[in-house]
């Protein structure tokens, strides 16, 4: 296998595992908090589910970027184009925004959501407010995803 291809795969992998890792931590934090609240108020499951699911989007963004790279490199069958080292490095670099921004924002969005879960326990009617606050954190993962998509779109392979 050429170095260029390997670098591209490294980028896809980084996007998936870093953003996914951030989401895992975030969903984990919110999930733990909501279990505590659910033990007191089992009927709040539906509302809390939203708060727990929200930090999961970073992982999806990372997965999506990785998949775009996989399509670009023709790894799902079809002919694998020849990738130069520079192109591979470019793909790797293009994956970094979603990977790093996804990781960090996933963790911190999880913290906001966990705090939001506590809030819902006391103010059940205001459950959208923590959702919006959490979305403020997510902005940067979305922007990271956007740049990754645009960069990948700009890199011509083969």
């Amino acid at each position: 296998m050429e170095w260029g291809l390997a670098l591209g795969i490294l980028g896809a992998a980084a996007a998936a595992f870093l953003a996914g890792g951030g989401s895992s931590i975030g969903v984990g934090l919110a999930g733990q908090a909501s279990c505590g609240v659910l033990s007191e108020y089992p009927d709040k499951f539906g509302t809390l589910l939203l708060l727990v699911a929200l930090p999961g989007t970073q992982g999806i963004y990372g997965f999506l970027s990785a998949f775009l790279v996989i399509l670009k490199l023709g790894l799902l069958g079809g002919s694998v184009p020849s990738v130069t080292v520079a192109q591979g490095l470019a793909i790797f670099g293009a994956c970094l925004p979603v990977a790093v921004a996804g990781f960090i924002s996933g963790v911190h969005q999880g913290k906001v959501c966990a705090a939001g879960v506590m809030m819902v326990a006391k103010q059940p009617k205001d459950f959208v407010k923590p959702l919006i606050l959490a979305a403020l954190v997510e902005t940067y993962a979305v922007l990271g995803l956007l740049i990754t998509i645009l960069l990948l779109n700009g890199i011509k392979v083969g």
């Binding site: 999806i60 963004y61 997965f63 799902l76 902005t139 979305v142 995803l145 956007l146 998509i149």
Partner: peptide, 26 residues
Amino acid sequence: ISYSRLLALGLSTSVIAMVINTLSRQ
């Protein structure tokens, strides 16, 4: 610039939908 999220979210839905189709075809 903040409105660029519309693009990112829109793309993420359609790409994931495509991925699901690819996976199910495989």
